[in-house]
Every structure is written in C-alpha cells, then in structure tokens.
Design a binder for these strands. Structure first.
Lengths: 180, 180
DNA sequence: GTCTATAATTTGATAGAC
DNA sequence: GTCTATCAAATTATAGAC
C-alpha cells in the first residue's frame, strides 16, 4: 500500500482520534479541519468511513508487526524477543498517551462495519501467530495448545494493562500490571 | 437509586448497545424504538446522553460489586473468592456474548463525557479495592504495593481476556487465557 | 487533489399538548 | 409519562467546477 502523504496524514489524525474515543470518535469534518482541507477532500482519499477505518487498522497492524522483527530470529533469545514485544505495547501507550488502536476497536468490535472488524481481528491473529512462532522456535513451551494459550494470555494481559492504565489515567499502571 | 421500570428498560437496551459498539453505538432513537416509546420520552427519563451513560455505568458497577459479596468474608477461602471473581467476568461475557461495559468505556475513555468517564473509572477503582481487600484479608500477598499490583494484574488479565475473546469472536479464548 | 455546494439522514435536545 | 412537532447541528456522502 503506497499512499499519498495527505492520505497518511488523514490516517494519523483518524488513528489518534479513534485511540482516544473509539470508531465513533472521529468524523470526516474533524479530520479535515485538523489536516487543513475540506471533508470532501478526505472522501477523495477514502471514499467511505469504512474504507478509512479498515485502512487505519491495517496500517497499524502492519507497522506494529514490522517493529517486532522475525519471531524465529536466532540472534535474539526468547527473553529478548518477549521483552521487546512488551516494550512495543508500552511504547504505544506511553509515547502517545493513548490506548492500542486495535484494542479500542476490539472492545467495540460487535458494532463495527465488517471490514473494520476484520482488520481489528487481523491484529490479534497476527500477534498470536508471532508469539506462537517465538514459543515454537524456543521449543520449551509445551505442545501447540500450551503455546497457543501462553500467547493468548500474554496478548490479553498487555491489552488489559493498556486498558486499565488508560482507565485510571495513569500509565505507570501498565508497568505495575506487567511486574506481576 | 430507585428508578421506574421504563428507566431500567432504557438502561438495559443502552447497556447492550454500548457493550456491542461503544458509547457512540447507541442513540436515543434506537433505544426508544426497542423499548417501544419515542425518543422524547427517553429524554424524560434521562435528560442528556451523558446522564444516560453515567447512570448506565454506575448501575453496571453497583450490580457487579454486589454480586461479588464481602471481600473479607471469613466463610470463604481466598481461592473461592478469586474463583467467584473470575466467574463474574466469565458470566458477563458468556451469558450476554458481550464485552464488559466498563471495559468498552475504559478503552475509549479519553473521548467520553466527563461524568461517563468518571463512572467508568469508578468500576476499576472499586474492583481494585475489592481484590485488594481479599488479598489483605488473606495476609499472604506481601505488602500494600505487592497486593496493589497483584490486584491490577488480575483485573487487567480479565478485561484483556474478554477483549481478546470478543475480538476473535470466540468466548473459549477467555478460558484459554485464564488457564495460563 | 481540493474546492463549493448540497443532499439525505441522523442526532441530541426542547416545547407544549394530553 | 408519553406523545407530536420541531429544531439546530452534525454526519456520511456525492456532483461538478477548478
């Protein structure tokens, strides 16, 4: 997906607004105003809100996964990979002071347009796969079911840690959760 | 808070819609149609959407806490209390096939009207307090900081388990997460 | 690519009759 | 408590000029 710079700016603003207030938390007009164009021009880049939402979630997932690197990389230990993984979530929270985009979308997934819901779910699919690959490459995490559950548990803890931290308005809560 | 039966019905519908699609996922007209009245009548019971949202979250928290019972109850073991606590979340997920109301609101808390956000946060405050009291009454969970973190970690894991389960559209994921 | 203009619908909310 | 009627504003979206 190569997009124009304006399209990327639009996604930036939409992402920030969604991570703050959910899918219903942004409108074409609000985005347009922040980007410095008119709402009709936003529709030029993304015909419908569903298009915009799906593109936003897809970009978020792709960037996030890219930042994780190869789960089967033999130059890093399992501990290093998992530590970097947790750090990926912490950065999303602390640097932007916002919830995980797909965490927000996942929470309200039953009310999302289908293609947005699909992209939100894709984030969780890809994350579980990545963790699964790390555990499998390690060899010490039991059978496929055990690895599956371990991956889901870490993913859930991280999303929950972000959600609770944002609810308390205190990002330190993230570290307190992850310290246990 | 004693409310009329119609007011309770309104909150029932609003809660279900919010747990599916977030705070932006319900409107006065939609609720009115489901309850069988007109939107103006909904405004009679709850003047503004913020009023409705705050009452909805407050009722949810009160009911949830009431279902947990006394955290210092000496007739139940710590294991029994925690097991019942986890079961409270599982029921919310499995019986209604929906996310935790305050989990949804917490995810989009930065975009909520102040009084709705306050009530969402109150859910997490009360939950942490309840778990804290269980651990303190037990005596075997370390100092106040350790208990605090342990409580936050369980809360985060449960909310995360619900969120991930809903994102995958598979409630069994909740149990898989909690098995680790 | 962006604009003006506008359509069609929805939304939160109020006034006043019954 | 509920209704009809209505409002002002916002929303998603399109047509067509530049």
């Amino acid at each position: 997906m190569d997009r124009s710079q304006k399209a990327e700016e639009i996604l930036d603003v939409a992402e920030r607004m969604t991570r703050a207030g959910g899918y219903g938390g942004f409108s074409f007009r609000e985005i347009a105003t922040e980007v410095g164009i008119k709402s009709a021009s936003v529709h030029y880049h993304f015909p419908t809100k569903e298009d915009l939402g799906a593109a936003m979630a897809e970009r978020y997932t792709d960037r996030f996964l890219k930042g994780l690197g190869d789960p089967r990389d033999t130059t890093r230990s399992t501990e290093e990979k998992i530590s970097a993984y947790v750090e990926g979530f912490r950065q999303a929270l602390v640097e932007d002071d916002l919830m995980c985009l797909c965490g927000v979308l996942g929470a309200e997934i039953a009310g999302l347009p289908v293609r947005v819901a699909e992209q939100a779910r894709r984030f969780f699919d890809r994350n579980r796969e990545w963790l699964d690959a790390v555990y499998e490459a390690d060899g010490g995490y039991g059978d496929v079911t055990a690895r599956h559950n371990t991956a889901l548990a870490l993913l859930a803890k991280l999303e929950g840690a972000m959600l609770v931290a944002r609810s308390f308005g205190d990002n330190e809560v993230f570290d307190q959760v992850m310290s246990v």
